[in-house]
Amino acid sequence: MNIFRLVGDMSHLLAIIILLMKMWKSRSVAGISGKSQILFAIVFTTRYLDLFTSFVSIYNTSMKVFFIGTSYVTVYFIYQHFKPTYDSNHDTFRVEFLIVPVGGLAFLVNHEFSLLEILWTFSIYLESVAILPQLFMVSKTGEAESITSHYLFALGSYRALYLLNWIYRYYFEGFFDLIAVVAGCVQTILYCDFFYLYITKVLKGKKISLPA
């Protein structure tokens, strides 16, 4: 465990807590893409099936359980508990255009042709694009609340920090996972435009609003 990975994990944890707090305190899921959150629930479920087959550490297990659990709570909030506030008219990204190609790619390009490994690969690929429905929603409505921006910034930072972690692990541990690195780069690149808006607007006290 190096500092980049630890801070990355904390950033990921923070993002999830920010999102849950935003929904709970405001009693609303306005501006949040239910489709992205369903994709994250699929990502965690397919990646952490190894909870049943291998044990890494108490830290690793408890984070996995937390991520899976909170992803389902988030989906429940959006589609049940706070459903009247869910803005489905603006959440129109076609997720089958992500799931089908990503599923095909995981089947073709993986480390080992076994069920758990293919599902792990699928989750890595899917995570890299899972935020697209949310970014699509922000661009469609042309705005994002500050709290949603903080959530997106923390969530995007997590994978960017993992890139530093992989550089560190390559040099100091001889560890290299091409699939995770390529997907991590794609994931981080998708956030670049948002990072720019966050730094130039949100940090100066303005909310993100895009020209129509």
Binding site: D9, D50, S54, N60, N165, Y170, F175, F176
Partner: peptide
């Protein structure tokens, strides 16, 4: 040598 894969990350 380079260790390719071990899913010890989150």
């Amino acid at each position: 040598s380079v260790v390719c894969v071990s899913h010890d990350e989150l």
